[in-house]
Design a protein around this nucleic acid. Structure first.
Lengths: 150, 150
DNA sequence: TTTAATAGACAGAAAGTCTGTCCATTTACA
DNA sequence: TGTAAATGGACAGACTTTCTGTCTATTAAA
C-alpha cells in the first residue's frame, strides 16, 4: 500500500549479512587493540588482507583491494610510520617498490588470523557447528557464483 | 610454521561475509544511480535504513545507526539539501525536530527495497532457492544469538 | 630509438566521521 | 514550584580515508 518505511528495511539480505560482519569487525579491531595493537584501524585491513609474504607492490595491493593506488600509498605510508611495514626497492623493476611486513607487522597479521578463528568458533558455538559449516559452504558457493571479481 | 601471510587470509568468515555484502552494496547504489538517484551515497543508508514513516528525531536515528548525533545531523543536512528529507518541529517536544522523507525520499526508499529484493532473487537463482532460504535462516539465528544490539 | 605504458609521488579536495562546547527546552525532585 | 539535571540539537574544528589530477622515472613495445 504505502511506500513509506516499514520494518522490512531491516530484513534485507544485506542487513542480515551486515550484522555479523560488523560484529566481527568490532571484535577483531577491539581484540587487536587489547593485544597491543591499538593503532591498527579497519582501513589498514585493505593492505593487511592482501600483502604477500615476499612483499607486494602498491599497485597490486590497490588492485586487489579495489582502491586507487594513491589511497593504497596513503595506507602504506601510514603503516610504515607505525612500524608495521617497510618499503624496499623491487629487485625486478626499477620503478617499483615492495611493501614488506616488519616482524611487528607479521605479529599483527598472525593475531588477525587468530582472532578471526576464535570469533568464528564463538559464532559456531552460538548457532552450532553444523550451521556454521553450512553457512560457510553457502557463502563460498555464492562468492564463487558471483565471480572471482566483479 | 611461518607467521607471514598465506592464502587463508581470504578464507575467514569475515571475508566470506564481505564478498556478497559488497556485491549488494555496489549493485544497490549503482541501481539507484541508474534509476535517477545518483546523489544517494552509501553513507546515506544510515539514515534511510532507520527513518520511520512518521518521521524520526536525529538523536534516535543516530542511536539506531550507531553513530554520533553530529554525524547523523550531517547526513540529515545533506539529504535535506538534496531534497530527500525535510525537517519539521516535533509536536511533542519543543527541543526536538522530526526528519521526514519527502515524496522523492519515499521513492528512493521504495527503490532501495525493490533493488534489494531483486538482487536477493538474483543471488537465489545462482545458489538455489533452498540454499538462499537456509542462508537467511542461519544469518537470522546468528543475529539473534549475537543479541539485538551490542 | 622514439613512444607507450607502468609504478609511484605530490598536491589538493571532498566525504564522513569524531570530540568538544554551547544553547534551548523539558523533566525530576527538594 | 523553582531550580538542577538531562536531553535534543547546533556550531566549530579536526582527523581519517578516500578521490582526481598531474608529474617523474623507468620499463616495454613499435
Amino acid at each position: 500500500m504505502s511506500n513509506v518505511p516499514l520494518p522490512d528495511a531491516q530484513a534485507t539480505l544485506g542487513a542480515l549479512l551486515r550484522r555479523p560482519y560488523e560484529y566481527l569487525q568490532t571484535k577483531v579491531y577491539g581484540g587487536l587493540a587489547a593485544r597491543g595493537f591499538p593503532d591498527i584501524r579497519p582501513a589498514h585491513s585493505s593492505l593487511l588482507r592482501y600483502i604477500r609474504p615476499e612483499g607486494s607492490r602498491v599497485v597490486d595491493l590497490a588492485e586487489r583491494a579495489q582502491i586507487t593506488k594513491q589511497s593504497m600509498a596513503y595506507l602504506v605510508g601510514d603503516l610504515e610510520s607505525l612500524g608495521y611495514v617497510t618499503v624496499v626497492p623491487d629487485p625486478d623493476d626499477g620503478r617499483a617498490k615492495r611493501v614488506v611486513l616488519t616482524p611487528r607487522g607479521q605479529a599483527v597479521w598472525a593475531t588477525l588470523i587468530e582472532l578471526s578463528q576464535t570469533l568464528e568458533d564463538h559464532c559456531g558455538a552460538l548457532i552450532g557447528a553444523a550451521d556454521m559449516a553450512t553457512l560457510r559452504r553457502i557463502l563460498q558457493d555464492l562468492s564463487q557464483a558471483l565471480g572471482p571479481r566483479d
